[in-house]
């Protein structure tokens, strides 16, 4: 579980655990909920959400990903893995995308 959906304000994010790895849940400025693996595909640092850029940003080597998890700037070679987001009774649940 990744906490309350209600308490996640637009244009903000929350770091959560997905098994033994870090993940990130984002509420976009438009209000959508999205979730990705928070492990940068470059060198394994943990990314964070930058509200000013509206992008995911890795502080280690300045890699950037858009809100679809696509690597758009800096050295990351691949997109972030995207997770399915389900909300039930205000609780966010993440799951690996099938297929």
């Amino acid at each position: 579980m990744a906490g309350s959906a209600e308490s996640l304000a637009p244009n903000s994010a929350r770091a959560v655990a997905f098994g033994s790895r870090p993940a990130i849940v984002i509420r976009t400025a438009a209000g959508d909920l999205r979730a990705f693996s928070a492990t940068c595909t470059h060198l394994d640092c943990t990314v964070q959400y930058r509200p000013d850029l509206q992008r995911l940003w890795c502080a280690c080597h300045n890699g950037q990903y858009d809100l679809n998890g696509r690597n758009v700037a800096g050295p990351p070679p691949r997109p972030l893995e995207a997770f399915d987001v389900n909300v039930k009774d205000d609780q966010i649940a993440l799951s690996r995308r099938s297929g």
Binding site: P22, T46, A59, C60
Partner: peptide, 9 residues
């Protein structure tokens, strides 16, 4: 282990 890398690292 679950927190993001801090800016300026």
């Amino acid at each position: 282990p679950f927190a993001p890398a801090p800016a300026g690292i």
